[in-house]
C-alpha cells in the first residue's frame, strides 16, 4: 500500500462510481488505512450530500401547462396575422384601384378593368415574391410600395422585378424617405426601369444589412 494521498478528483470519482473496478478497490483499500484521505473523503461526501438534499426540497409553483399553451396559441395567431398582412395590403390596393407599374404588359385591346385586374394580380404576385425573398412590406401608399429585404437578396429581387418589367428604385443609402420628392419619382418613371439613389429626405433608420426597394404604382404605367 502506497502512502501517496488520493487526489480530490479521485475521491470525487469514487463517490460518483465512475472508476474501473481495480481503481475502486485500490482507493477503498487506501481509505481504510489513511486517516487524512478518509477525512477528506467524508468531508466531500458531506458537501455533496448537503447540495443533493435540495433535490428533496418541495418547491411549490403553479402549473405551467395551461399558461404555456394559451400563450403559444396567442403567439401563433399573431404570426398568422403578420403572414396575411401582405395579402390584406394587396386587397386594399385593389379596392382603391391602385396597381403596380408593369411596362408593356397590357394588351392594347384590354379594357381599363382588365388592366386593373392585371395590375392587381401583379400586386398579389409581388407580395408573394417579396415574401419568398424573406422580405417585408414596410410602407404602402397610392404612389408606391416600399419593401425591405436582406442585402443578400438584392440580385434575386432585381432579376425578379426586371423580368417582370416592374419599375422600381433601389434605395441604397441607409435610410428611406417618408415623404419622397415628386421630382425624383418622376425621374425614375420617365426613364423607364432605372436604379435611383434616393436621399436627403425625412429618414427612417434602416438596418445596415437590409435594403429597401420602392416599387412604383400603375399611375405611371405606360400602356402601349
Amino acid at each position: 500500500m502506497t502512502f501517496k494521498h488520493l487526489k480530490f478528483e479521485e475521491l470525487s470519482d469514487l463517490i460518483d462510481n465512475v472508476l474501473v473496478e481495480e481503481e475502486r478497490e485500490y482507493y477503498l483499500a487506501h481509505l481504510s488505512q489513511c486517516k487524512d484521505c478518509k477525512k477528506e473523503y467524508e468531508s466531500l461526501l458531506k458537501s455533496i450530500s448537503l447540495i443533493s438534499s435540495l433535490n428533496k426540497e418541495n418547491l411549490a409553483f403553479p402549473d405551467f401547462s395551461q399558461s404555456t399553451i394559451i400563450i403559444y396559441k396567442s403567439r401563433e395567431k399573431k404570426k398568422l396575422l403578420f403572414k396575411v398582412i401582405p395579402a390584406i395590403a394587396a386587397s386594399v390596393i385593389m379596392v382603391v384601384g391602385i396597381g403596380f407599374v408593369k411596362v408593356g404588359t397590357f394588351n392594347k385591346s384590354s379594357s381599363n378593368l382588365s388592366g386593373k385586374l392585371t395590375a392587381n394580380y401583379d400586386a398579389q404576385r409581388i407580395t408573394e415574391d417579396i415574401d419568398s425573398l424573406k422580405g417585408k412590406i414596410v410602407h404602402v401608399n397610392q404612389s408606391y410600395i416600399d419593401t425591405e429585404l436582406d442585402k443578400g437578396m438584392l440580385t434575386k429581387a432585381e432579376n425578379l422585378l426586371n423580368n417582370k418589367n416592374i419599375k422600381h428604385a433601389i434605395i441604397i443609402n441607409p435610410a428611406i424617405s417618408r415623404n419622397p420628392l415628386e421630382k425624383i419619382v418622376d425621374d425614375v418613371s420617365s426613364s423607364g426601369i432605372k436604379r435611383t439613389i434616393i436621399k436627403d429626405y425625412d429618414f427612417i433608420p434602416l438596418e445596415n444589412k437590409q435594403i429597401r426597394i420602392r416599387i412604383f404604382n400603375y399611375s405611371n404605367l405606360k400602356t402601349e
Binding site: 409553483f61 402549473d63 399553451i69
Partner: peptide, 29 residues
C-alpha cells in the same frame, strides 16, 4: 397542441428547480 401539457407536467418540476437554484429568486424562476 394540448398534448404538450403532458410534457410540461412531466418536466416542470425539474426545470423550475434548476432555474430556481441558478437565480435563487422565486419570482424570476
Amino acid at each position: 397542441i394540448e398534448q404538450f401539457s403532458l410534457i410540461i407536467k412531466k418536466y416542470q418540476n425539474m426545470v423550475f428547480r434548476y432555474v430556481y437554484y441558478q437565480f435563487n429568486n422565486y419570482d424570476e424562476a
